[in-house]
Amino acid sequence: MPELHWKNSDFRILPLHTVRLDEESAARKRDRLSSLIQAGEPDLILLGGDTFLSPVPEEEARRLLSDFLAPAVDSGLPIAFTFGEGERKCGLSDEALWEIFTSVPGCLLLDRAEGTDGFTDGTLPVFREEQGTPSLILRLFDTHTETTSYEREYGSPGRSRLPYPLYTPHYMDGVRFNQTAWFDKDQERIAERYGRTIPELFFFHTPTPEHAQLIHSQDRGGFDGVIREERKCQTVNGGIAMAAAESRTVLSIICGHEEKNDYFAEWAGMKLGVEPAFDHGAWIVSVTPAPSVQITRL
């Protein structure tokens, strides 16, 4: 399995949310990715969900993704991915999409979680020099689709959709509690294996209610960004932000999903951020050796 190596002073990630590949925009998006790579000089490209949205035949999806990522492949950049709700609307199975994504040269295979609801839950260790202990763990979660997906599984069909929900009337699923529990258990495994905790960054598609809390109070100090649309966070809180805060090892939780919103702020000792859709903006998320997280808009 290819490994991620931290070669320079900072480890730089180019997360790409809501790319929504289609025939019409493919060439433009490939050119934009090329520009972003040149401007951002990333060490990793991370597709954060909704890479596909519209129904697409399997071979076309393979070609669209391959063409889009060509600038990354040509630059020898490693690529990672997780799924958002769009991947469940494009007409292809999770397994088919997994095969399409992982067939791209340079695509990293996650150390996948066992026993969670998420198809793309997993970790990517980042190694610095030749040390055997990772300096950083990138943890990816699958945020599923809408609340209907777990209502079916947990036997409460339609019941999460109240007219006046706590956070947002978009009824999104998100990181479920069993995925949060996996993080908790996996942290113990990592600490046991390496004799210490390892700093982590989380990436997933649909924001947490804690992200929405930041939007809700954007006039406070430390809020960096702009809100151009209604928040669209998880409906029932799966506890991932609190688990991350309680662990004291998570530096940042980066999400997407909200197309035009572009913000980050400190919350409980972490940086929570929502990156806009590919057509509306892009970030470089840099991890310094300290470690700390710096977000730069490209």
């Binding site: 706590l166 908790d184 809390q213 109070s217 406070r220 506890g239 609190m242 688990a243 309680e246």
Partner: peptide, 30 residues
């Protein structure tokens, strides 16, 4: 969480009724 005691958790605009109560911590939920 090892944060300064003046860390603001209840932001000026909130989703609950805006009180500074606690709740079971994540390790209790686990």
């Amino acid at each position: 969480f090892g944060l300064p005691d003046d860390t603001v958790f209840v932001l000026p605009n909130h989703f609950s009724d805006g009180h500074d109560q606690a709740t079971p911590m994540f390790d209790q939920v686990m």
